[in-house]
Nucleic acid binder design. Structure first.
Length: 485
RNA sequence: GCCCGGGUGGCCGAGUGGCUAGGCGGCGGCCUGCAGAGCCGCUUUACAGGGGUUCGAAUCCCCUCCCGGGCUCCA
């Protein structure tokens, strides 16, 4: 029997086509993903991007690659164009904190959000402010090589010196020159972008440099940190679609001019937006839901199943109604998993295992993996998860005494799928031992009533428990209950 | 203005030339004292509109309409 076709194929923004994934130095994979500017709470739009890359990280690891994954923290240098102020400073003023206090607050908030969503920690999370010297060394190199020029304490990248400019985004240099809005004075070319900006005397976030006091431009940090921590050429570089231009376009220009090596990145991967009523979820539109707020209503598994229900490159529309659909879907998956755990306790250790069953499980797993290998098709992969649930439920329905080997097979399949999709295996309610004992005793008495034919009172008890958040189900193997979350 | 994506059944959302996506909801069946869960079936001869290519098109080409995004604020 041929094994599953596991060769990953992935869409590359640079070539605009799906390509076979072949890392530069297998089995190592170097992956860099642009992290957030830690100026405010992260929202579900951020969650979408980082969950997608988390699944990619998990899947590459599953395939046997040794993945070095860097995701940065931007804590300086990201200018808000409207007011020409660093986003960190703007946030600090808003919250009446010192800039680095704001950074601390939201960086740790971000970390905790990522953990809550069961997003695996990258192997390194470098911060821009810890690389200021590295940045000006890189900028100096660009100036020396003639790719950048200094104007009154500012350093700009000279786009005209880099031929490939526009290859990633499709933006044409001539267009950029035409449609500029008020180019900064001293720029040779409107399309040139800042590597280092001069800071006025009272400016809060500034460092000394060969060009005087100032701060780095937004794009240089990612070039510098990725090269420093992963190397001069990367296998994967990703982020949200919004970063294609100018951020990633500029990164390519900077990095290739710094190192002299091409290509800077072999595979560029970009994630589609999370939308609300068709419009992009964003802070400025005010249509965003913070990860913390979302997790007050939904579990991490709900959020992940929702986000993975559409293809990563497509936009996905958020609404509470849709989230409720996914809560229902999640419950069904988790209930099936619980059924397996419960059945394991009363399973026959020996006995004829379901030959057909094992084959079905293998087939559905193989299908699951090959769908992920097809440009990370998580919607199809979650359809495979549904299929797994159906097979397992049907098996449990058909057997009075399930066989241990079959259940182990099923549980293993769930483990594999959960691990790759980053779903937390549902936990049996912990710390509720006393509640559990009380409910068990009530149900034992209720069983007695049912045996006596006193269904009216039995139903009343069931209803009372339901109102208390305890759902009772009468099954052929006896009553079961679960505590509502 | 320039450049990208899209418009799929009640809702969400896969699918790039023929082969059941899937979920949620609704209806019916089996099971059950009832309910719930589960399984099965139906809802599903769906693919913005018009033309074309083809034995065959949601899928390729042309035109039109509508929506979203990028064009140095955003994952």
């Amino acid at each position: 029997m041929a094994g599953p076709r596991l060769g990953l194929r992935i869409y590359n923004t640079l070539s605009r086509r799906i390509e076979d994934f072949e890392p530069l130095q297998p089995p190592e994979v170097k992956m860099y993903v642009c992290g957030p500017t830690v100026q405010d709470l992260a929202h579900l739009g951020h969650a979408k991007t980082y969950i997608v890359f988390d699944v990619l990280y998990r899947y590459l690891t599953f395939l046997g690659y040794r993945v070095r994954y860097a995701r940065n923290i931007t804590d300086v240098g990201h200018i808000r164009e409207d007011i020409q102020v660093d986003r960190i400073i703007a946030g600090a003023e808003r919250e009446r904190l010192a800039p680095m206090e704001l950074v601390d607050k939201y960086m740790f908030s971000f970390f905790s959000d990522m953990d809550s969503l069961n997003i695996r920690r990258p192997t390194i999370q470098p911060r821009a402010t810890m690389h200021i010297v590295d940045m000006w060394e890189a900028i100096s190199k660009l100036v020396e090589k003639g790719y950048a020029y200094v104007v009154d304490g500012n350093v700009y990248f000279d786009v005209s010196r880099y031929e490939g400019y526009g290859q990633l985004s499709g933006v044409r240099r001539e267009e950029l020159m035409k449609h500029r809005v008020e180019p900064a004075p001293g720029k040779r070319n409107p399309a040139d972008f800042a590597l280092w900006k001069k800071a006025e005397s009272g400016y809060l976030l500034k460092w000394s440099s060969p060009w005087g006091e100032g701060f780095p431009g937004w794009h240089i940090e990612c070039s510098v940190m990725s090269i420093k921590h992963l190397g001069e050429q990367l296998d994967i570089h990703g982020g949200g679609q919004d970063l294609i231009f100018p951020h990633h376009e500029n990164e390519i220009a900077q990095s290739e001019c710094i190192t002299g090596k091409k290509p800077f990145v072999k595979y560029w991967i970009h994630v589609g937006y999370l939308t609300v009523n068709g419009e992009r979820m964003s802070k400025s539109l005010g249509n965003y839901v913070s990860i913390k707020d979302a997790l007050k209503k939904y579990t991490a598994n709900d959020v992940r199943l929702f986000i993975l229900s559409s293809h990563y490159r497509s936009p996905l529309d958020y609404s509470e109604g849709v989230m409720e659909q996914f809560m229902e879907f999640r419950r069904r998956i988790e209930d099936c998993y619980f059924r397996v755990l419960e059945a394991r306790g009363r399973a026959a250790e020996s006995g004829e295992a379901g030959v057909e069953f094992a084959g079905q499980i293998d087939r559905v797993l193989e299908e699951f993996l090959s769908r992920l290998s097809d440009d990370l098709n998580t919607p199809q992969a979650s359809a495979s998860l549904t299929e797994l649930v159906k097979i397992v439920n049907a098996y449990l329905d058909s057997r009075q005494v399930p066989v241990a080997r079959d259940l182990d097979k099923a549980q293993q399949a769930f483990s594999t799928v959960f691990e790759i999709l980053g779903l937390r295996p549902p936990q049996v309610e912990s710390g509720g031992e006393r509640l559990y004992l009380v409910v068990e005793r009530i149900l034992r008495l209720r069983e007695e009533l049912r045996r006596q034919g006193n269904f009216k009172l039995a139903d009343t008890i069931r209803e009372a428990l339901r109102e208390a958040g305890i759902q009772v189900e009468d099954t052929s193997a006896g009553p079961r209950f679960k505590v509502a979350r």
